[in-house]
Structure formats: structure tokens, C-alpha cells
Amino acid sequence: MTSMSYTGAWPVAPTPFNDDGTLDLPGMRRVLDCIADQGADGICILANFSEQFLIADDERETLTRLCLEHIAGRVPVIVTISHYATQIAVARARLAKDLGASAVMMMPPYHGALLKGTPEQTFEQVARVGEVGIPIMIQDAPLSGVELPVPLLVRMAREIEMVKLFKIECAGAAAKLRRLIAEGGEAIEAPFDGEEGITMLADLDAGARGTMCSAMITEHIRSVVLDHLNGDRPAAAAGYQRLLPAVNHENRQCGFRAAKAAMVEGKVFASEFSRHPVPPLSPETRAELLDHLRPLEPVAMRWGH
């Protein structure tokens, strides 16, 4: 694929659970249908905002198969494969490819605060995954605690054929995106941002071509990206300003629980349950979120009514 294939809004699909903590598989199918109806340009599954750190290995395989079978090519799907062990990351990438995923996303190898891959080990892991033959999105996220300097990212883009996408969501993302694009040139096929789009306007100004947001207000996020890509920055800025209170509340107060709350309101699935030790949203925080969302009339809050 070329960089033009990777633009717009690629939301992370939330993972619904039943109130007893089991996977809500019918709800997962409804999540995918809702995101498709939002007009998403692609979908990412099993990411941090999918609560991947609360999901067992056998459940990951179940969800990977279910999602790719249910989407059935309607939109491209990126499967998150991050793991400290290179062998496991490679196996996850191979499964994703075999099931028809369009790409995989991976953070650098890390486990907790102290087990972190060196730059060379990170490069080696990505190269091993690249041998599987599926496009790779490198996720530069604070959660890993691993620094990914621009020269390392550029080296990956130039030397590992499958490294095509970059999700930059570290502090100062716009400055890093601008430098990455300047130093990497044509090798940087698809620069994205993340963090629910909270710095999206600055990141688009810096050259981002897409965003990996949550599934809370995908259609509105996408409009901002497309306005900017079409050269209408005033419209993009106006749209961004309209969305910012909701996105800020999501990013700073709710995290991945925001999209779940919106979708429960929209009867996409029934329960906002997250596995322990994640606490539920407080009633006040949830009410404030919905107050921000109602004027936007998001698809997620209307879909099942």
C-alpha cells in the first residue's frame, strides 16, 4: 500500500465484557459494525485502548479471529502484536497476516519499568516481525517507557521494508513528526498521531496524514483530518475546537472507558465493565463526559436506538 491508503481516522476498537468479566463476543461484533458505520478508514484491535493488558492469550486469538472474520474486508484492520518476547510478537504477526489483517502495530519490547529493549534490540525485533511480510505501524507511546529517537525510526523505515506506518503519541508529538518526516522523506509513508487526537491540529500541521483515535467520536475526528488534508485548515481548526472539550475529558479524565460509556449509551453493547484493577468511571466523571458528547450527537451514542 502507499501512504494514500493510510489516511483519515483509524479508531481503536474497545473490547466489551459482560458484567461477570467474560468477553462479550456479540457485543464485539456490534462494536465493529458501529465503527464501520462511523465511516472509519480502518480499525485497530487489541491495542491499549482495547484493554489488551487485561486480556488472556487465548482470548486474544479468539478476538483476532472474530474481528477479522466479522469485518470481512469491509475496512482495513490493524492488529496490535506488542510483546517483550520477539518470538511471541512474530507469532502474533503471523496469525494476523494469515487471518487477513492489513497491518500490525507494535510498541518496542518492554515489560514493566525496568525491562526495556535497547535501540538495537528494538530494531532487531521489528526486523524479525518484518520478515513475516505484513506492514508494520511503529507505536511511539509513553506507556512503554522506551525512547524511540528519530534516527532509529528513520533507520527502520529505510532498512525494514514492512515498516510503513508511525503512530507518534509521545510528548511533543508535532515536533517529532515534523523531524521524522523531514529526515525520513519518502520512507515515512504514513505518519499518524494518537492520544485520542488531543494534539491533532498541531500534528496535522506537522505533516500527520491520519490519526488513531478512540471509537468515541470517530466521524468527527475524521472530518477534521480530511478538512486539513484537503487544504481547508480553517475548517479543520473550527472542527478541532468544537471537539476539544470532549477529547480533553476523554484523554485526561476517562481513558479507554470513555468510548465504552458512549457505546453503552448508544446500546452498542450492554456493560461498561473493565477487569480489575481498573475502576469504573465515577458517576460525576461519566455525566460530564456525556454532557460534552451530547451536542456532537456521535454515532456511538445513537447507533443502537
Rank of each mutant, 00 (worst) to 15 (best):
E183I: 10
E183P: 10
G184W: 13
G185M: 14
G185S: 15
G185R: 13
E186I: 05
A187L: 02
A187Y: 00
A187N: 00
A187Q: 01
E189T: 04
E189H: 06
P191G: 09
P191N: 07
P191R: 08
F192T: 03
F192L: 08
F192D: 02
F192C: 06
D193F: 04
D193I: 03
D193S: 13
D193K: 06
G194K: 07
G194M: 11
G194C: 12
E195I: 09
E195H: 11
E195K: 07
E196T: 05
G197S: 09
G197T: 08
G197E: 07
I198K: 05
I198N: 04
I198Q: 06
T199W: 14
M200E: 05
M200Q: 09
M200P: 05
M200H: 09
L201W: 10
L201A: 14
A202G: 09
A202W: 06
D203Q: 15
D203C: 15
D203I: 14
L204C: 13
L204E: 11
D205I: 15
D205E: 13
A206K: 13
A206G: 14
A206Y: 14
G207C: 07
G207K: 06
G207W: 07
A208K: 08
A208E: 10
G210P: 07
G210A: 14
G210C: 12
T211F: 05
T211V: 15
T211L: 10
T211E: 09
M212G: 06
M212N: 09
C213M: 03
C213R: 00
C213P: 02
C213T: 06
C213Y: 00
S214A: 15
A215G: 10
M216Q: 09
M216L: 15
I217T: 04
T218P: 10
T218H: 07
T218Q: 08
T218W: 09
T218M: 10
T218V: 14
T218I: 11
E219Y: 09
E219V: 09
E219P: 09
I221T: 15
R222K: 10
S223G: 10
S223W: 03
V224A: 05
V224Y: 01
V225M: 07
V225E: 02
V225A: 07
L226P: 04
L226F: 14
D227Y: 13
L229I: 08
L229P: 01
L229A: 06
N230T: 05
N230A: 11
G231D: 01
D232A: 11
D232N: 15
D232F: 12
A235Y: 01
A236E: 04
A236N: 04
A236L: 08
A237N: 05
A238H: 14
G239W: 00
Y240W: 05
Y240D: 03
Y240E: 02
Y240N: 03
Q241D: 11
Q241T: 10
Q241Y: 04
R242C: 09
R242D: 05
L243F: 02
L243C: 04
L243W: 03
L243V: 02
L243T: 01
L244S: 12
P245T: 07
V247L: 06
N248L: 10
H249D: 03
H249L: 08
H249T: 04
H249M: 04
E250Q: 15
E250P: 06
E250F: 13
N251K: 09
N251I: 06
R252H: 12
Q253W: 00
Q253R: 06
Q253Y: 01
C254G: 05
C254A: 08
C254P: 02
C254S: 06
C254R: 01
G255F: 02
G255Q: 08
